[in-house]
Amino acid sequence: MKTLALHILDIVQNSITAGARNIFIHIEEDTRENRYLIRVGDDGCGMTEDTVRRVTDPYYTSRKTRKVGMGISLLKQHAEQAGGHLKIRSEVDKGTVVEALFEHDHMDRQSAGDIAGVIVLLVGSNPEIRFQYTHHRNGGTYKMDTNEVKEVLEDVPLNDPEVRQYLKEMIRENLGEMGAL
């Protein structure tokens, strides 16, 4: 994974596979406290304690198409390399929260990458899931809730190519204003 945005794209796939109806993506940047925090939560099927312990093992996966599961272990490695950590809280039938913390100015922290593009890709491919995206940076906040977007668009689908373009633009403009691009 070259960027944090790609990590988000990757771990949200786990939430989708877990059957989530609601997914939140929360990013908290604080340059004064030198933190870059990513938290992804869902109301999917959750995991047992035993499974939570095993997901950071690259040779653990729940899927049957291949024998390795690199997603979480890669994120853990990247977080730890950048002075942070990875934490997972999960409860069966309730959901899962994955939290990755990085030192904001750490040399080995990956760049944020195309977060707007990733959010729009997820939203457009999973219109039935409610995504709540919150991005804080040094006191500034941007929020996007797909329920609100759907209300505005009425019958226009979220996967319409032009809608994707507009949403990407909207997120980028707001992140740019916060200095989070």
Partner: peptide
């Protein structure tokens, strides 16, 4: 004009609906 808010997006709705 750039889309910056849901209000801006709303202005595009009719145009989108007719295209669809």
């Amino acid at each position: 004009t750039k889309i910056k808010s849901l209000a801006d997006l709303k202005k595009k709705k009719e145009d989108l609906q007719s295209k669809i």
